[in-house]
């Protein structure tokens, strides 16, 4: 009897469903990668770049849905149980919005009221000579300390 209960719980889909979801996940990943490659040559502050990033995030959420719903089988559980897991995760909506907004606002404030910060972030620097680990580790920290002393 136990067995039948356990079996009913996992009704829906068979090997076919697994293959279907695998293909969907692979295709979504390939699209993500294609968008990633396409983005390499784009200018930094373009709105197209932002749109592509948005598309990648949507694809990411689609992948997450397929993994949770089908691989983790959440879709076939009872609705009440799904709700006890999904509803708390809705906190993320506030979490992400509030913190990213805060970060953005902090940057704007610094750029407006901290001329030093603004200036520092426009100075281009030469790429440092390859300071590999183990070889020049102390030298790397020394000049920084000296600089501070000078300032």
């Amino acid at each position: 009897m136990e067995h039948t209960v356990a079996h009913e719980e996992h009704s829906g889909g068979g090997t076919k469903e697994i293959i279907r979801v695998t293909i969907i996940l692979s295709v979504l990943t390939v699209i993500e990668l294609a968008l990633g490659f396409w983005m390499i040559g784009m200018p930094l502050e373009s709105s197209l770049r932002l749109a592509v990033k948005g598309a990648i995030v949507i694809l990411m959420l689609a992948k997450a849905f397929y993994i949770v719903a089908y691989f983790m089988h959440l879709k076939h559980e009872l609705k009440n149980m799904i709700m006890t897991i999904v509803v708390p995760l809705a906190l993320f909506a506030w979490f992400i919005t509030a913190f990213l907004y805060d970060g953005n606002s902090f940057r704007n404030l610094r750029n407006t009221y901290d001329p030093h910060y603004k200036e520092q972030s426009t100075i281009k620097v030469e790429k440092k000579a390859e300071n590999k680990h183990g070889e020049s580790n102390h030298e790397e920290t020394k000049p920084a300390a000296e600089k501070k002393a000078v300032e």
């Binding site: 913190f99 970060g103 953005n104």
Partner: peptide
């Protein structure tokens, strides 16, 4: 998921606050 979310959101916040 909340632990990972906190890490990633912290990363996002720092990235949004940097030029």
């Amino acid at each position: 998921a909340f632990t990972f979310g906190a890490f990633l959101i912290s990363y996002g916040t720092t990235r949004f606050s940097t030029n």
